[in-house]
Design a protein around this nucleic acid. Structure first.
Lengths: 315, 315
DNA sequence: AGAGATTGAGTTACCGGTAACGTAGTATTA
DNA sequence: TAATACTACGTTACCGGTAACTCAATCTCT
């Protein structure tokens, strides 16, 4: 008991005793068992479960970095979960991670299985859903309106005089943020009297090469498309390189728009038309709100980090 | 006790009792407290601490993905640690993570503080050091010989007739794998009678844009460099774009070599001269070896995943 | 039928830390 | 000087699961 007091610097011991305890700590190479502390006090651990769909998608690694940096600076640890965009995977992961008494959870996306939602509500721990904005989150939410961002891209392209639109992405899931962007884009085109002539959803990750061959596929099935919106910048950059290889002029022959303003955009020969999103900020804000709740303070349930259309010169 | 037996499907109960227990589980929304299980048996948890220097570096996210996928399939969880290439950060993280009784640890790099090594040895848990090959690891090691890969690049460039060499990277740390590559490269050049006229170590992350402005810096301070080796492909791609922007012909005016064969290389107009490394495999192999040891089996202490020079046509 | 084995269930103790309480010895105050 | 307060340290019980043990009821076999 005295050792416990010394180690927690709780007071109630003499300097002589402290020295004796610390000497033993040194001699034994003693490391505390935090499990026992959490267990004893029926407290929560300093773990925060963070689920993201996919580490192969650069967008999420930036978010994750923002989260982990913030958590670490407040003495919490990230327990990683990769759901591969499968809700049942997420459900299993949630159950496992909750059994370790985490201090809180951060989940990517707003779509969860009914059982997952039930478990989350029952667990009664701080929770932040990130990425997609959700007006009625389980607990808290940080993200942006993906539908609106897609809508803005569509409207912007309409003002540029385009009338035959294309889309290339990789997501099939209706609950996915990328699908919301596509829906917003389609709605803007419809509202503006244009035509979304071709949309392609590849069975792949949203990276450079899928952007490359996706463009090839789309153009060969519909050569009259005038402008293509991509799920993200990496795919758009793949498209740019396909066009260069095929001597297709940008924006002369075809317009290209990306999303997310990823690092590669900074070195292209021209400014890519894209949507700027502060990925790191989403992660930081999510972690901040979570830590507030963990410490018993209150936090705004919904935070919109917004987005900004970057006109560029690829359209 | 009977409930515990039912939940672990340990046998020694009737079907009627199981039904009663499961009904209560359902009614109460009972979730087990795994902390107590680990604590009770003086066992280890199913956590595996994984430290990587940086999530902003694509190379490590691939490794991490390989690790996590393998761990998850064997019911273990990744506890993330980002060391930002600082050894004392790693030491602190090791101490914290060990207090949670992890099943094992995976650390990136072979350089640790003396105290960290002492703690690791005392903890006596399975440990894999990845990325850099280490002939005498604390426990186990998976990686490749970075010095040799740099040496091979240097030798290859010499056979192409170059004599004035440059290097652009971001690492300052002598214990870093990237520095080993540079040293191997320098040694090959020296052995072959060439000259490493300029080497640049930027204070930045090894991404596209640092490759872009690093090339600008290097060429302006030494315009006679004939070929440049970059810390990784992303930096090399930044260089390619700088050269395109400045109408510098590749490989006519300058040769470019990258490292790591990152995804962007697949969409470039020409094949980038690079070194292929199976990042995902490093992660998978590390997790596999760790799981073997965790289950009490033995595993080879050192695994070399090797590398392969990709000649390309940028030199 | 009676001895021994099997089955289904309950009881006790323990893991390592800490809250809550107990208790000498000393210091402070009325 | 006696009552009271404070200081430094010790003792007990508890968190939730499970190993090891106990025990009554039933089953199997000679």
């Amino acid at each position: 008991m005295t050792a416990s007091r010394v180690l927690r610097d709780e007071g109630g011991f003499s300097e002589k005793t402290r020295a004796k305890v610390m000497a033993e700590v040194e001699r034994l190479g003693y490391l505390p068992n935090r499990l026992a502390t959490v267990f004893a006090g029926d407290k929560r651990s300093t773990f925060v479960g963070v689920s993201i769909p996919d580490l192969g998608n650069e967008v999420f690694t930036h978010v994750l970095e923002g989260i982990d940096r913030k958590l670490v600076s407040f003495n919490h640890q990230t327990v990683l979960g990769m759901t591969q965009h499968v809700q049942t995977e997420e459900e299993n992961w949630i159950e496992t991670v909750l059994s370790w008494q985490p201090a809180g959870l951060i989940l990517t996306g707003r779509a969860h299985t009914p059982r997952a939602i039930q478990i989350l509500k029952g667990a009664n721990i701080p929770l932040v859903e990130i990425w997609d904005l959700n007006s009625s989150p389980v607990d808290m939410c940080v993200g942006l309106n993906h539908f609106d961002s897609g809508y803005d891209v569509g409207r912007f392209l309409l003002t540029k005089g385009y009338s035959r639109f294309g889309y290339v992405g990789t997501s099939h899931d209706a609950a996915n943020a990328a699908t919301s962007r596509l829906n917003g884009y389609a709605k803007a085109i419809e509202d503006g009297g244009g035509k979304l002539t071709k949309q392609l959803c590849l069975n792949d990750i949203p990276g450079f090469y899928p952007g490359y061959y996706g463009t090839e596929q789309l153009l060969s099935s519909d050569p009259n498309v005038e402008v293509i919106f991509y799920q993200n910048d990496n795919m758009a950059v793949g498209a740019v390189h396909f066009c260069q290889a095929q001597q297709i002029s940008i924006p002369g022959d075809i317009g290209i728009a990306g999303w997310g303003e990823l690092p590669i955009a900074s070195v292209l020969p021209y400014r890519l038309t894209t949507v700027h999103v502060n990925h790191l900020r989403i992660g930081q804000l999510a972690a901040e709100k979570l830590l507030l709740k963990i410490n018993g303070d209150s936090a705004r349930p919904v935070s919109d980090v917004g987005f900004r259309l970057v006109p560029g010169d690829t359209v």
